[in-house]
Each structure stands twice: as structure tokens, then as C-alpha cells.
Design a protein around this nucleic acid. Structure first.
Length: 948
RNA sequence: GCCGGGUUGGCGGAAUGGUAGACGCGAUGGUCUCAAAAACCAUUGUCCGAAAGGGCGUGCGGGUUCGAGUCCCGCACCCGGCACCA
């Protein structure tokens, strides 16, 4: 529908059109780059200023979550967070802070590899192209980044340090007594000199090298284990727990995930469970986010209790959070896979065994085998779908340590091998799951806690029926009883207080090509050996095929086969690792995509350092604890913006690595991110036709009755993500073209609060453009292009509005309320426009306050107002309290809480005088209608409420 | 099921317990124009009324208060996380 507009007189180049905006935006972007406007100086190293000192301003380290350079390019939703951090950074610079803001790229990962598999092109090649494209799209936004500090995780220089950190983790162990990680050499020394007993009672000196390494592997923070892992045949790789959704599928690709026993690398994140929970109290994060991490780590306090089984050496060990209900334990359940099951299973059913307990089998062994086979055939999903309790009796009885009672031992799949000890004492009277099971199998349900309500009763109440010859819990509260019984169990040696976590160790190897190789080789005994730092980085070999072997998504029997295994020349390598040249075999798994993002915050502080991850002086300056600002400060990045979806994965991993590096003395900060903010998302509508196929959203029209049509055909509207396949993508490039980057930035910031998701609406963007055009017209004469500024004094109305705006906008900026800050700037602009104010005293502060949002326009206007230097470091306007008080305020007069009149009064009017005027207001008099006035509430000068 | 967050005009959203709907979009009317676009000006929660003014309005039901979108209790729905975790 577009027609070529003839050039009108007003279109001669002095109007703030998208075309003019684009011209001046490019000009300022070039100038910022040339002048290094956003370069942040370091205390030491190559980025330290030549002239000795840093500015005296406070440091402010600002970060966005690492972007993945997608081949699809950006849509308008992606820059939301980048614009917000840029606004913060520009505001802080005007507040005098030394701001560090840069952006790197998280460039290893599955999409690039999948694309490489499809096209045969090397993922490095396509990834670098994508990075270049994304850099171009983001540069056009006018972000105030320090370009010298940008990097990508695939840079060999970065990979080197990722591998180096892995080696530090590999060469460390967690000292539970000192509650920190220590170098593995110190552990070996303790074994050697006898300060620490070797587990299993062996003598260190008598062990072979391989045996010693096996012992040490039990301590290393990075270790290989042969344990059940999440195997996704459809992806051809194993996954961490965090990468598997609640319904048992891969987060990426949505493939079914199976539990398989496989030899894989793990990182001992569980050693840090307590600190990862406790230190959440020291950071400024959204409470909801902290909660997600606390829940994921899942710390629960309770007790381990040993139940003896007559005739068996080893007792059954259970974990319970309710040791207070021990007297109510009427049976036990082991997970089907529990190693003790074979040991304690009876040869035959005891006499009079309930037929519900036997599963119809002739012997316990048979029943167990049948039950196990059925459980193993079920995927995690099926296990969850069917929550009806099932189980079989083992034929064995265990002894309840508090009352000597013999209680039956079952196996049932509602007890999970992976949590606690894989065995429970069942208290059907006070646990819903145990109660259900007891109902199914006809087991007794004794009550040991009094209270209103039927069994199962999980509430609070005094203990009953809980005493033996030595101890009585009767009458105690749940909390008291827990304490008492734990003490008694410890005394008896049949149990102890303990803490259990839901968190598992981090499965750290993947069968992928496009990731960091492990700096590990194996010798002839299959012992993993760390490569020396001098051999880093270990670079990826060229391979003919980038794909791991993938299988049918439900092929449970399949085996992982990493692509690097096929690079045999690379895998088998001759090295001299101190015992002369020998042939070694390289590790063929690669690190997960989370590796690079687990430490990248540190690299921004010293991106080119070849000797260390970052010089301690630089790390300390940008990230060190700020004790003078807040007590017990863990340090970290001052402000980090990103999406909630990284709350559990990335943010748990990065905190873990940071703490390891802290323990080993490489960093001074205990937490990577002091303040975290989760931004919302820009959502979009998508439309499907009668067949359910997506139709281009920008060609859908809304009818009068609120329905939607595409080419005359009715379509269904849905709301959600923006995406290529949904045919509803709007790109920043389109916005630059149609409106300019400043308009786009202002629109995104004015749409609503930063943490709330909201729908994109292209046609609403014009409102922001109109606003910027009005600002432009205040400063520039559209006919001549000259500045219109005058040196007039401000009238009192303008003074008042200006200073109230400054005060309000400043407060909004501090609290990230950019939408209301912009609204206030629009109000000021509208006032100046209506009153035709062109006084410098009003225009300059407006331009200054606009600068964080529309930096190019602000620079241009600042220059036209007669300033040579960039507006970036011009101090932010300050409100003069003298002008904050209006000459007149509106007083609302209410009768019975309803507004019946308004008065213009002086702000310092006395209450009596105000009451008098209010009672005289004609409409108020009419409403009162002669009724008796019972009470008058006066909040001078804003409100009078008359109660009749 | 458990935990967390939310529900305000046609739409996005504003509101220290004190004028509900700032600001913006859209819509309607107007200025300019041969015309259109752009820009600018005005109106715009809803109902009654010519107007003055009034009734009703922040998911639903109660409560506290002179006064509640805001505080308390109960409920519905939506979004997110976890889910047989002992």
C-alpha cells in the first residue's frame, strides 16, 4: 500500500525521520568506536590507563547473560535485556561510576553442530559468521559496550582457560572439616604421612599407583563414575539432571531420556550444596529465583537409622526427616534396585503370608525378580504416570530399634534408589505414600501423633504411643521429639542426625563434537591423567562427521558413541608426561555447553591475560567484596540481567565454579553475581489456519467483531514465543529501518516493567517516534536545521515541572522503572512543547535525562546545543528542592469517602483553614444536605474527608 | 499435590492506605492539504443526563478502615518451578 511520497517542503532533511535518525545513529556509533567512549580502564595490565590512575568513581560491573549466536539472527525480543543493561550503564556513567559493560558469545553448542551435520560446513566457520551477524545487529542498537573485552567461548585462548579450570577442579578435593576445596597434593600428603586414614583401611605405601589413583578419584571434584545417567538416544548424548524436564525428556529437542549405567565424568557439586544454599542469603536476587535454587538443591534435615535384620550382618540403613515417628514405623521399603535385597530375601514365604504381599509368586526370589523386571521396563515417564502403589514382600523382617518389634521388609518402586539411602522406614499413620501402600497391602497404621484429623495425619501434635523402657517421647512436640530421639539413637549407636540433598553431582561429559575437549589422557591402566598447563589448549581435531551416532529416540539398548572417537590419529597420541614418551589415549567426550558460561564473568575483567584467568588486581577491583558498602559482602558482578530459565542450570553451575576458584585462591569474590534481575520476555501472537498451519502474522487482519482473518479466511490466534516456524518474527533490522534504533530502544523500555512479559505490537512503536520527534523539534528548527535554544530564564511553572521530573526520573532510574521514567519525560516534553519553551535551562536537562534511552539523539542534540564532548559522562541532572514544592496543589474534598469537590490551595495551608474552605464548597454543601457532620479527616493539603 | 508469581479500559500499562486508569497504542472528531500520508489539536472506563451532576466500576465472596486496586480471611482462574525426594 506504500506509495512514493513526493518531497514536501518540510521533508528537506531537518525533520527527525527514520532516515535522519539512521544517519545520525551511524555517525555517533562510529564516533563512539573511534574515541573508545565506553572503554573501561583496568587497574593493571593491557587495559590499564597510561595515566596512572582510575577515576575516583565507584566501579560498576554490569553484565547480560551470554548470548548464543543463533543462525536465525535476532528478533525484537532478544535486545530487551541488552537495552536495559545499556540504559543502566549509561545512567551509571552519568552518575560518575566507572562502568564495565561488554558482551561475549557463548558459541559452543548443539545448534551449530546440527547445522554442521546438515551442511557439512565446519561449525567454527558458521558460528563465526553468526557472531559477525549478531555483532552487526547489536552495534546498530547503539550499545555502550567496551569492544576490547568481547570474546567467544570457542576462541582457543578462552578454551585454554576453560580447560585450565577443569584441571584445577580435577586436581582438588573437598575438605569437609575446613569446608573448602584444597589441592589434591595436600590430600596425598596426608595419606602419605598418615594424618588421614586411607578409606577401607589400606596402607598407602602398599598400594599400587593405579590403586592410589582409585582412592584419590573418590575425592577429586572431577571424577569418572560408572553410574546410572540420563541417556537420550535420539540426541546421541547423555545429559545432566538439570537438562532433563520433569516429564523425563531432554530440555533440548524433547527426546525421551532413559537411565543407563555408563562411565562418565562428574563434577562434585554436591560438596558445595550447603554453601550454595547458605550464600543465597548474601546476594541480592529475586526471592523466587533463590527459592528455585533452594528447591533444586533440596536440603532436608533428618536422621539415618539402622534397622538390624536377624541373621544378616549388615543392617538396613534408612533416611527419614521424621525420626520422631519412629515408634509408628510398621514396615520397611527398599528400592527395587537396592543392593541389600538379594542378601536379605528369604528362601520361602513365612507361614500365613498375606497373598497381597507375594505378587502371586511361589517364593520371595521369584516375586522380587518379577517385580524388578516390571520396574526396569518402565521409563521414568511411565513410573510417574502410574502412581498406584505396588510392591512385594522380601520374606524378611527387620527390627525397629526403638521397640524391638519385627516389621516386614518390602520392595516397592515408590522408593527411589537415588535419594537418601534408597530405603525407608514406613510410617503409614503419618505419611500419605506409606498410608496408600499400607492400604493396598493390608498393613497396620498405628498412630503416634495426636491431633484432629484422620490418618494419614501429617500435621503437628503431641506424640503418643511412643515410649520404651529407656525413653519416652509421649507429650512432646514434633520438634522436641526429633531432637530427643536423635540424641537417643546416637547414644545407642543405631542412628545419627544427618542432612540429605536432592542435588546430584553434575554430569559433565557429552558425546558431542562442538564443545571443549577434556585436557585428559588415559594410560595403559585406563587411569585418567591431567595434561600439563603447557599443553593447553587441547584443540578439536578435524573430523569427517560432526555427529555422534544417534538412534531411534526410544532405543534403550543403544550405546553413546562420541564423534571424537573416530579421529583415531588424534585420540592415540604420543606424549612425554614425565616418564618419557609413551602412547596415551585421549578423552573423546567433550564438555557440556555450560562450561564456558561457568566462568566467563571473570574473563571480562581481564580478557587478554595470557598468564592467568584474570589478574587478581583486576578481579578484585571489579568483583571483590565491597565491605565498605555492605557487610559480609560476597562480591561479584554488580548487576546481572537475564532470563529465569537459567536460574537452575547456568546460575547453579557458575556459582559452583566460582566457589571452587575462590577456595583455591584464584579469585577474591565468593559469589559471581551480587545482584541478579530476571527480565520478562517479549511475546507475540501467532495465527493458524483451518488446517492448523501457521500463516504470516503480519498479514492477518482483525475484524470488527474481534476475530482474525488471513486473506479472507478465518484464523485462530495464539499467544507465545516469537519464532521462525510460527511466522511471527519481527526483527530489530526492520525497526532500525522503519523507526531508527533510538525509537526502538525507547519503545522497548516504555512497554512496561522490565520483569514482566508482554506482547509485541509494531503499530504502537510510532508513539515513541512521535515523542522523540517532539524532543527534536524543541531543539532544532525543522525549517532551517538551526538550534532554537535561547538563554531565557524559566518561568515558575516550567521550573516546577522540570525539577519534579528530575526528582521522579532519578528515583525511577534507581529502581529500574524505565517505563514510568519515560512517561515523565514525555510529560515534560509535552509541557515544553505546549508552552513553546526553548530555554537552555529546560532543554539541556531533558536531553541529559533522555540520553540513557535515546543516546544517539541525545548526543546529536547535545552537540547542537553547543557542546563538543560526548554526553556520556555529563553529570546527571539534580533536582533543586526549592522548586519541588508546587505553588498550588489540588485538594480533594470527599464526603463519605467519595470525591465531591476539588480545591486549588496553597501547599502550606493550615488544617483549620482548609476544613473551612472545604465545608463551604457548593457541591459538598449540597451532598451533605444538612446532615450532621460526625468527623472531618484532614490530610493537608491534599485531602479532606467529611463523615456524616 | 506442594511452592512461587499474577488477574486494573478495546490493547500495553500507571497509581507512599487518600482524585483509579499517568504515559502510550487504537478509536472518534478537527486543523493543514486539490487529496492522501505525516504532523499537530481535542475527546475517549461504563451507564443515565442537553448540561450541571449522578449511579456503577481494579477476577469472585467476606472483613478491617473515615477511606481499600493497595491490608486481612476464603475462593476461582492464568503463568512458572518442583513432583512417590521419605
Amino acid at each position: 500500500m506504500t506509495t512514493d511520497n513526493p518531497t514536501t517542503p518540510s521533508d528537506t532533511g531537518h525533520r527527525y525521520t527514520s532516515e535522519l535518525a539512521g544517519r545520525l545513529e551511524l555517525r555517533w556509533q562510529d564516533r563512539w568506536e573511534e574515541e573508545g567512549t565506553f572503554d573501561a580502564p583496568n587497574p593493571v595490565g593491557d587495559l590499564a590507563p597510561d595515566t596512572a590512575q582510575l577515576s575516583d568513581g565507584a566501579k560498576y560491573f554490569l553484565m547480560d547473560m551470554f548470548p548464543y549466536p543463533s543462525g536465525a539472527g535476532l528478533h525484537v525480543g532478544h535486545p530487551l535485556g541488552y537495552i536495559a543493561t545499556d540504559v543502566v550503564g549509561r545512567y551509571r556513567r552519568m552518575r560518575g561510576d566507572n562502568v564495565l559493560h561488554a558482551l561475549g558469545y557463548d558459541a559452543f553448542g548443539l545448534p551449530a553442530e546440527l547445522y554442521a551435520v546438515q551442511t557439512g560446513r565446519h561449525p567454527r566457520e558458521t558460528t563465526l559468521e553468526n557472531i559477525a551477524n549478531m555483532r552487526r545487529q547489536l552495534r546498530r542498537l547503539g550499545l555502550g559496550h567496551d569492544p576490547r573485552r568481547s570474546f567467544a567461548t570457542i576462541d582457543p585462548d578462552f578454551v585454554k582457560w576453560t580447560q585450565w579450570i577443569f584441571l584445577q577442579i580435577f586436581n582438588s578435593w573437598y575438605d569437609d572439616d575446613l569446608n573448602r576445596a584444597r589441592p589434591i597434593d595436600e590430600l596425598i600428603a596426608e595419606f602419605e604421612n598418615g594424618a588421614r586414614d586411607v578409606p577401607g583401611g589400606a596402607v598407602w605405601a602398599d598400594l599400587s599407583a593405579a590403586e592410589r589413583e582409585e582412592v584419590i578419584a573418590g575425592y577429586r571434584l572431577a571424577y569418572i563414575s560408572d553410574a546410572p545417567v540420563n541417556w537420550a538416544p535420539g540426541l546421541g548424548t547423555v545429559l545432566a539432571n538439570e537438562e532433563v524436564t520433569a516429564d523425563g525428556r531432554s530440555e533440548r529437542g524433547n527426546f525421551p531420556v532413559f537411565k543407563r549405567r555408563l562411565r562418565q565424568w562428574n563434577l562434585r557439586i554436591t560438596a558445595y550444596a550447603d554453601r550454595l544454599i547458605d550464600d543465597l542469603d548474601r546476594v541480592d536476587w529475586p526471592e523466587s529465583g533463590k527459592l528455585m535454587q533452594r528447591n533444586w538443591i533440596g536440603r532436608s534435615h533428618g536422621a539415618q537409622v539402622q534397622f538390624a535384620v536377624p541373621g544378616i550382618d549388615e543392617p538396613i540403613e534408612v533416611f527419614t526427616t521424621r525420626p520422631d515417628t519412629l515408634f509408628g514405623a510398621s514396615y520397611m521399603v527398599l528400592a527395587p534396585e537396592h543392593p541389600l535385597v538379594e542378601v536379605l530375601a528369604a528362601d520361602a514365604w513365612p507361614a500365613h503370608t498375606d497373598t497381597r504381599w507375594t505378587g502371586g509368586s511361589a517364593t520371595p526370589a521369584e516375586a522380587i525378580a518379577a517385580y524388578r523386571a516390571r520396574a526396569a521396563a518402565k521409563s521414568d515417564v511411565e513410573r510417574q504416570e502410574n502412581k498406584e502403589k505396588t510392591g512385594v514382600f522380601t520374606g524378611a523382617f527387620a527390627v525397629n530399634p526403638v521397640n524391638g518389634e519385627q516389621i516386614p521388609v518390602f520392595i516397592a518402586d515408590y522408593v527411589l534408589m537415588g535419594y537418601g539411602t534408597g530405603a525407608i522406614m514406613a510410617v503409614p499413620g503419618h505419611d500419605e505414600r506409606d498410608f496408600e501402600f499400607a492400604q493396598v497391602l493390608g498393613l497396620p497404621t498405628p498412630r503416634v501423633i495426636d491431633g484432629e484429623g484422620d490418618l494419614p495425619f501429617t500435621g503437628e501434635g503431641p506424640l503418643v504411643n511412643s515410649s520404651n523402657a529407656e525413653i519416652s517421647l509421649d507429650g512432646l512436640s514434633v520438634a522436641e521429639a526429633k531432637q530427643r530421639i536423635i540424641a537417643w539413637l546416637e547414644e545407642q549407636g543405631t542412628g545419627q542426625g544427618t542432612t540429605t540433598y536432592r542435588l546430584r553431582d553434575w554430569l559433565f561429559s557429552r558425546q558431542r563434537y562442538w564443545g571443549e575437549p577434556f585436557p585428559i589422557v588415559y594410560d595403559e591402566h585406563d587411569t585418567p591423567i591431567a595434561l600439563p598447563e603447557s599443553m593447553l589448549p587441547v584443540e578439536l581435531p578435524e573430523v569427517p562427521d560432526y555427529s555422534p551416532r544417534t538412534y531411534a529416540p526410544d532405543d534403550v539398548e543403544s550405546e553413546p558413541e562420541p564423534p571424537l572417537a573416530r579421529a583415531t590419529d588424534w585420540v592415540n597420541v604420543e606424549l612425554d608426561l614425565g616418564d618419557g614418551p609413551k602412547t596415551y589415549r585421549r578423552e573423546t567426550n567433550t564438555m557440556p555447553n555450560w562450561a564456558g558460561s561457568s566462568w566467563y564473568e571473570l574473563r571480562y575483567t581481564d580478557p587478554h591475560n595470557t598468564e592467568r584467568i584474570a589478574d587478581p588486581a583486576n578481579e578484585r577491583y571489579w568483583m571483590g567484596p565491597q565491605e565498605q558498602r555492605r557487610p559480609n559482602d560476597p562480591g561479584g558482578v554488580d548487576f546481572y540481567i537475564g532470563g529465569v530459565e537459567h536460574m537452575v542450570l547456568h546460575l547453579l553451575y557458575v556459582r559452583f565454579w566460582h566457589k571452587v576458584l575462590f577456595d583455591l585462591g584464584y579469585v577474591s569474590s565468593e559469589e559471581p553475581f551480587y545482584r541478579l534481575f530476571n527480565q520478562g520476555y517479549i511475546q507475540a501472537y501467532a495465527y493458524t489456519d483451518a488446517r492448523g498451519a501457521y500463516v504470516p502474522a503480519d498479514e492477518v487482519v482483525e475484524a470488527e467483531d474481534g476475530t482474525f482473518t488471513y486473506h479472507g479466511e478465518p484464523v485462530q490466534r495464539e499467544y507465545g514465543k516469537m519464532g521462525k516456524s510460527l511466522k511471527n518474527v519481527v526483527t530489530p533490522d526492520e525497526m532500525y529501518e522503519t523507526f531508527g534504533a533510538d525509537t526502538f530502544r525507547v519503545y522497548e523500555m516504555s512497554m512496561g516493567p522490565l520483569d514482566v512479559s508482554r506482547p509485541w505490537e509494531t503499530r504502537a512503536v510510532v508513539g515513541s517516534q512521535r515523542f522523540l520527534q517532539r524532543v527534536w523539534r524543541l531543539v532544532v528548527d525543522e525549517e532551517t536545521g538551526n538550534a532554537r535554544v535561547t538563554e531565557d530564564d524559566l518561568d515558575s511553572a516550567t521550573l516546577g515541572i522540570l525539577h519534579r521530573t528530575i526528582a521522579g526520573v532519578r528515583a525511577d532510574m534507581e529502581e529500574l522503572r524505565f517505563n514510568t521514567a519515560i512517561a515523565k519525560l514525555i510529560e515534560l516534553t509535552n509541557h515544553l512543547t505546549k508552552q513553546s519553551v526553548s530555554a537552555r535551562g529546560a532543554l539541556e536537562p531533558l536531553v541529559q535525562m533522555l540520553a540513557p534511552f535515546a543516546p544517539h539523539l541525545a548526543e546529536e542534540l547535545w552537540e547542537r546545543l553547543g557542546h563538543d564532548a560526548t554526553i556520556t559522562y555529563v553529570p546527571y541532572p539534580e533536582a533543586d528542592p526549592r522548586y519541588l514544592v508546587a505553588e498550588e496543589v489540588t485538594c480533594v474534598v470527599q464526603v463519605q469517602g467519595k470525591v465531591r469537590g476539588k480545591l486549588q490551595v496553597s501547599p502550606d495551608i493550615a488544617e483549620d483553614a482548609l476544613t473551612e474552605i472545604a465545608l463551604a464548597e457548593p457541591n459538598v454543601v449540597r451532598t451533605i444536605d444538612g446532615r450532621e457532620i460526625r468527623k472531618v479527616i484532614v490530610k493537608a493539603p491534599k485531602l479532606v474527608n467529611i463523615v456524616v
